[in-house]
């Protein structure tokens, strides 16, 4: 009997060790998540499977039965809504990152550190994420409104459906400037290339990015472990090195 229990326990342990967590992640956090997941997989032996899309699309998928365990949203409204609708585990929400908005150009000389380029005459396109759909687009809109530049620059806007596509417009040179998530162009606390202006946090509402444990992951030990890790200092350091607050 003892031997039997021992075997059962061994099996149970090995099962929990081999657990997989399915993470639905908003486009802006893909790269930091990959870095965090690498450490997580090494430390715990759990595996992380990642699905990337815009927060709105992930929400629709979760509502329609997508088997995700964890949502790393680009906003704080979607996790709150999922919790209210009974699709998320009550009380599991927390802010894993606060987004930082940058004005970025692929040209190393185009953007000055005070963002004066915006008020100078120019004709190049300015890429923003669609404010209707993407938190970073909404933040860009708020910032430009606060600077009284929104109406002036409106005719130069091109909109990406999410922040990933917005980056692609600027990186390919088709738009000369773009409002992006710092995480897309930063690594180890530094700009990877191009030039950027860090939009002052006081002129846009904080981009609180919340995580939530979803109902289908409620009993998944790997999901719980990943969420725990996201709050710990090792993960915080990684997340901050990508430019998040």
């Amino acid at each position: 009997m003892r031997l039997f229990l021992f075997v059962v326990m061994c099996l149970a342990t090995s099962l929990t060790q081999a657990a997989e967590v399915k993470v639905a992640v908003a486009s802006n956090f893909v790269q930091p998540l990959a870095a965090v997941a690498a450490v997580f997989q090494k430390d715990t032996g759990h595996t992380v499977s990642v699905s990337v899309a815009s927060t709105g699309k992930l929400y629709a998928q979760i509502r329609n039965g997508a088997p995700f365990d964890v949502l790393l949203s680009a906003d704080d409204e979607t996790p709150a809504r999922l919790e209210a609708e009974g699709l998320g585990v009550l009380g599991s929400r927390f802010t894993y990152a606060t987004g930082v908005l940058l004005l970025w150009s692929a040209d190393a000389a185009a953007v000055d550190v005070e963002g004066r380029v915006l008020s100078q005459p120019g004709s190049g396109k300015i890429a923003i994420a669609n404010p209707r759909l993407a938190p970073y687009g909404r933040a860009a809109q708020q910032a430009l409104t606060a600077l009284s530049l929104y109406d002036h620059l409106k005719s130069r806007f091109v909109m990406g459906e999410n922040i990933g596509q917005t980056f692609q417009f600027v990186a390919s040179g088709n738009a000369s400037l773009g409002f992006l998530a710092a995480s897309q162009v930063m690594l180890n606390g530094k700009l990877k290339s191009g030039s950027a202006w860090r939009v002052p946090a006081r002129i846009y509402a904080p981009i609180r990015q919340d995580a939530i444990l979803l109902k289908s992951g409620a009993n998944n030990t790997a999901a719980q472990a990943l969420l725990r890790m996201l709050r710990e200092s090792a993960a915080r350091t990684i997340i901050q090195s990508y430019g998040y607050e």
Partner: peptide, 8 residues
């Protein structure tokens, strides 16, 4: 249409 869907 895509925008409408994404915006719920």
């Amino acid at each position: 249409i895509y925008d409408h869907v994404e915006a719920l």
